[in-house]
Simulated assay, not measured.
Amino acid sequence: MSDDEKARAATIFDVARLAGVSHQTVSRVLNDLPNVRPATRARVEQAIKQLRYVPSQAARALVTRRTRTLGLIVSGAPDYGPSSTALHFNEAARDARYSVITASMLEADAASMRSTAELLVRQNVEAIVLIAAQRGGLDTIERLDLGVPVVAVASEDRGALHRVWLDQYAGARLAVEHLIGLGHREIRHVSGPTSATDTAERLRAWSSTLGEHGLPAREPLVGNWSPGSGYVHGRALAEDREMTAVFVANDQMALGVIHALAEAGRSVPGDVSVVGFDDIPEAEFFAPPLTTVRQDFVELGRDAMAGVLAVLGDDDRMPTPRVPDLVVRASTAAPGAASTPPAAAQRTAVSS
């Protein structure tokens, strides 16, 4: 690459890295703003000269004006929860008269997350919302000095990030307490992947709730959110004649578990009760209709926008976490009960 090509390729982030400062500090130097130490200013100016960096109008705007533009990063597979949350965040942003630039990535590796976040900043976003299905995406963006606030939709607490979330622990407790209340004592768990942000809280709630009741927590079976992985684990569970109930970490895997149990001649809920998580639109049409934990992704998307308004100073408080509901349908019953579906689904809510 020629020197001229290098100069054209240089960005404000290249200058920041070379000078050892944030890009926001570079912007302050470019705009001749105060509160930059002379030594720091000299280092930035030297990096600009060395890289032959020519600032764009967009770079100059990073700290000088409001753009009413937000960035949204959605990482991981296009599952129901993240997709629904993103949709309703976009609607809430539009209602607040903000535009949204969306970037989706299947794998949230560090390099892709960094380049995506920096691309959004170059487009003058005032804040970035991250909907991260995997822990790695949170780890990466937490370490970046982007100069704009980041609001993470994440069940795990990250002190460096603003956060909105649904209380996964409270929702999973509802599921397990329901099964215990029906009289089940051998309750297995099919978890999500260990890299997923929601997995740990649901697993912790299952284990601790069983422990509080003096019940054993057998080794969980680790799935990947897909019906196929639920089916594989359902075949193994069908061989366990002591087990009478399964708490499954999402509805898609619960579908696979139910199918595998039926193939093995074990009825749901006559032989085994099954509880899912999410309440996807298809859940009430499973055979039998699925008892599950309902997450309100509409409100979660709106909460993400409310969080943005809070960190930008347009509102005075961050939204508080929401507790999911338990929706009771025909896939759960007392051990050995006849498989007679209830007259209507029941919904139970608790507060954390």
Rank of each mutant, 00 (worst) to 15 (best):
G230T: 02
N224R: 03
V232P: 00
H233G: 07
P220W: 03
G230N: 02
W206C: 03
G230A: 04
R218A: 15
H233Q: 12
T209L: 02
G230S: 13
V222F: 14
G223W: 01
A217M: 05
H233A: 07
T209C: 02
A217P: 07
G211A: 14
G211F: 08
R218H: 14
P227T: 06
G234E: 01
V222Y: 08
W225Y: 15
W225Q: 06
G214N: 08
W206K: 02
N224I: 01
G230F: 04
H213N: 12
Y231E: 10
H213S: 07
E219I: 10
G211N: 12
L215V: 13
W206N: 01
A217R: 09
V232A: 04
P216H: 12
G211L: 10
A217W: 04
G234L: 01
G223N: 05
H213M: 07
W225N: 12
L221Q: 10
G214Q: 13
G228Y: 09
G223Y: 07
S229W: 10
P227S: 02
W206Y: 00
S207I: 10
L215P: 05
W206L: 03
A217L: 09
Y231L: 08
S207W: 01
V232Y: 02
R235I: 00
H213D: 10
S226W: 13
W225E: 04
E219Y: 12
G234T: 00
V222P: 01
S208R: 03
G228T: 11
H233R: 06
E219D: 15
S226E: 15
L221S: 10
P216Q: 12
L210H: 06
V232E: 13
L210K: 02
T209H: 00
E219L: 15
G211D: 15
Y231C: 01
L221F: 12
A217S: 15
P216W: 02
S226T: 15
E219Q: 15
A217F: 04
S226M: 15
P220H: 13
W206R: 02
G228W: 06
G211I: 06
H213R: 15
S207A: 14
H233F: 14
A217K: 11
G214Y: 01
G214W: 03
A217Q: 13
H233E: 07
L215H: 02
G230R: 00
S229C: 13
S226Q: 14
W225V: 11
E219V: 13
T209M: 02
G223V: 03
A217E: 11
P220C: 14
S208Y: 01
P216T: 13
W206V: 04
L215W: 05
P227G: 09
R235E: 03
H233P: 06
T209E: 02
W225K: 06
T209D: 05
L210T: 07
P220S: 11
R218I: 12
P227I: 11
G214K: 09
N224K: 04
G230P: 05
R235L: 05
L215A: 05
G214R: 01
E212F: 07
